[in-house]
Design a protein around this nucleic acid. Structure first.
Length: 218
DNA sequence: GGTGCAGAGATATTACATCA
DNA sequence: TTGATGTAATATCTCTGCAC
């Protein structure tokens, strides 16, 4: 895993959730605490029995041909049955244990590579989602502004209508009940085209200037 | 069904080789 | 010479299958 993993909160948890096939055996289950591993002791002196091969023979790299054949086999199947292990070992002139170790390490490398690839994919998706979220948020703000403006206009119209009906004589036969009804068309928010004209609807599609309307009752 | 054991795989770590 | 990197090897843990 590299430093590119930094920046997301617990990306491993996410990947574990999305790719349980990769993380089945060792990923701690939810609520389970993973035990700390006992640290291995350095073994330079050679008194412990386990590292005899490494002590006697210097560690040497596998030849390119050996690696090629191992890679070929790994490409066919990542797991190594004991029969195949023995056959490969004799083909390569290696110890079966070496073949097993090579496959173990190769699986680990393959898994790391896979995780890094999946991480990059998820990161790209995440970035796209963040951009879309910002776009939607600014759209919400814009729409809220529009709504506020519309409410203001509605309130203005309501106040005008209320003012008119309270000033007019209740017994008047000139102003019909249609005066409180909305105009036949008011544009997108019901008032467009009327706010600057100071006109009132008095029925039968007849519009008169506000001052003229007042003069009728003066 | 519970238990002990062996084998295999996963993972962390060490040790060595190589290269810039 | 030295630090970084790649990789073979080792240590430890976990899981699984099997015999009892």
């Amino acid at each position: 895993m590299t430093t590119q993993m930094k920046g997301l909160e617990d990306p491993m948890a996410l990947i574990t959730q999305m790719y349980p096939c990769i993380y089945t055996q060792v990923a701690p289950q939810q609520g389970e605490i993973s035990k700390p591993r006992r640290r291995r002791k350095k073994n330079k002196g050679g008194e412990s029995g386990a590292a005899t091969a490494a002590e006697t023979a210097k560690k040497r790299k596998l030849s390119q041909e050996q690696v090629d054949l191992l890679e070929l086999n790994f490409g066919n199947e990542h797991k190594l049955e004991s029969e195949r292990k023995d056959r490969l070992a004799s083909e390569l002139g290696l110890d079966p244990r070496q073949v097993a170790v090579w496959f173990q390490n190769r699986r680990a490398r393959w898994k790391n590579k896979k995780l890094e690839e999946e991480y990059s994919k998820l990161k790209t998706i995440h970035e796209g989602v963040v951009v879309e979220k910002c776009r939607l948020e600014s759209e919400v703000l814009k729409l809220k502004d529009q709504l506020r403006e519309a409410e203001k206009e509605i309130q203005g119209l309501t106040e005008r209508v209320d003012g008119v009906s309270s000033n007019s004589p209740s017994s008047s036969s000139v102003l019909s009940m249609e005066a409180v009804d909305p105009p036949p068309f008011l544009g997108e928010f019901g008032a467009q085209g009327f706010e600057d004209q100071d006109v009132f609807y008095i029925g039968q599609n007849s519009y008169i200037n506000g001052m003229e309307w007042m003069n009728l009752y003066m």
